[in-house]
Design a protein around this nucleic acid. Sequence first.
DNA 1: CTGAAAGCGCTTACAG
DNA 2: CTGAAAGCGCTTACAG
Lengths: 335, 335
Amino acid sequence: MSITIRDVAKEAGVSVSTVSKVLNGWTTISAATIDRVQKTAKSLHYTPNARAVNFAKKASDNIIFLTSLSKEEAYKNPHMFDIMCGVHSALSKFSHSVTLVDTSTEGILGETVSRIISKGSADGMIIHGSALNEQIAEEISIAHFPHIVIGNPDFSNQLCWIDTNHTLAGEFAAAHLLQRGYTKIAFIGGRKTDFISQQRLKGVRSTLLKARHRMNAEHLIYTDSSREAAYKAAENLFAMEETPDAIICENNLIALGVARAMEHHAIRIPDDIAFLTFDRYPYASIIDPSPSIVDIDVYDMGMQAGEMMIRKLENPSLLVQSYTTLPIVIQGKTT
Amino acid sequence: MSITIRDVAKEAGVSVSTVSKVLNGWTTISAATIDRVQKTAKSLHYTPNARAVNFAKKASDNIIFLTSLSKEEAYKNPHMFDIMCGVHSALSKFSHSVTLVDTSTEGILGETVSRIISKGSADGMIIHGSALNEQIAEEISIAHFPHIVIGNPDFSNQLCWIDTNHTLAGEFAAAHLLQRGYTKIAFIGGRKTDFISQQRLKGVRSTLLKARHRMNAEHLIYTDSSREAAYKAAENLFAMEETPDAIICENNLIALGVARAMEHHAIRIPDDIAFLTFDRYPYASIIDPSPSIVDIDVYDMGMQAGEMMIRKLENPSLLVQSYTTLPIVIQGKTT
DNA sequence: CTGAAAGCGCTTACAG
DNA sequence: CTGAAAGCGCTTACAG
């Protein structure tokens, strides 16, 4: 049998309630008693039974992280796991645990979000944007369950969310290039419909306009985000009447294709043409030469989500809808 | 107030214990009662309070996944997260939840493993090999706490572990090359002291020997696992009197360097020289041409760890120490 | 086949 | 400042 609060009480010569109060930091206990109880708790190696505490306190100090955990997700979407680590780090600082719930098989197992909520095994839920859908949003809203969504939902809602400002990242990218003296800036984007890509482009455009530079319409190229498409897009840019002096690559794969095209065409970087990419991962470290980057610290974003969660728990009526983590510019050898 | 087992009992006109038994699948209840209780439970949208169940059953149906969750871990070590997803998938099939515990900050927060165990918030622990140390091993052993280590510990112990057989992976690599007609096989390894690298090399060697081919001593080159070092190693191989007809690259970065060296030296792949690499991630998808690979399905390994955990829970005396997940060969364009 | 009752190990009004 | 007692919502011997 493991040792209980009764054992401590008996040994310290006080009541069970007094031990409980000491352990929970009540201020109404005399210094002498506090000291004695703490010492005997320590000497008996007493650890409160978490299951009993949760039950009595009607709280679990546990937060669910809801996301897709399918096979190979770790390679396709490492950013999500970096966010997860940030969330965990913030929550564990506040003595909360985090348990994983997978949305990719959720349906099969029949564990709906409302069921998870009513079980009471968690006090709140942090939802990775890619895992969110309108049904989950509704169930969460109806239950008034504390939550933070990471990523501004693309449907109307009254959810709490935080996100990073991709338009701002685009502005940073353009500002960096302007500052380094480039003015004829091209943009090779992912699919035209991709929301993040759109936002980044918007930021680039507005910054150029503010500086009285307009983007040549030919210098904006959409791709399917493959290296091959980016390679061809770059070759097209090289062959134009007005060639750009800098290329903004919307993601790492595009940068990889562009770098290779430049190599094959013996274009000197950054003297002939400069380039820059968003995001440090997954591939920027193996792009040669090492590129200048506009990066988002998603671990930090996860931490912020965790801290917001704690605040929500303390003040459930708090409405959180904000852009938090700032992009940063990393100077590489390509600008 | 959420609805409790008493409400269901009252509504169904039975006792609380009967409801409990129905919900827990006892076979001593009449079909009629089972039916009535289940129907009223459903109609009341009753969900048992997990905190109360855990408390009464003295179990949490929760498993801890112990690993390093530091910043950027997701990019440096995506395999660990793929394992995590596999673990989660297996455990959730058996209605167990998984909560994360970070070893990279554990010391700071003073949450030792024995403390975690005695809190009773988890029934077992799955430990990623990289997070294991002798202290944790000892605390786990002393407490007789159900556990599975993923990765054969490199110190003597009586722990339960599962691992993948890297020697076998080496054998598969060599066998594949022999079968494709290559006999002069080179091996570019990571650091000489790296355990996995050693095991793979051992497998390669033994398979070659069995086929009466000996490896040219010059054809074995250790590197620091960088692209640059691999590039140079490849160039050295090209310049040798006896050039190899195939190169086994111990990891993706090495394969990246080798592929590039071949490109620069206009070596035709696989006609002049073939190559093969271990692991599909993180970079094999962007190596050109797409390489033949000996891969380990680590998600599957995670699943197996999860299933082992369930078996341990049912039979705590079970000793698990085995190599489980088999390597697979993926035919690419480089052999 | 069913139910009354004790108990899981804490917390928290409440009384003193 | 301290303690007796009720209660958190279930499970499980035990009796019938």
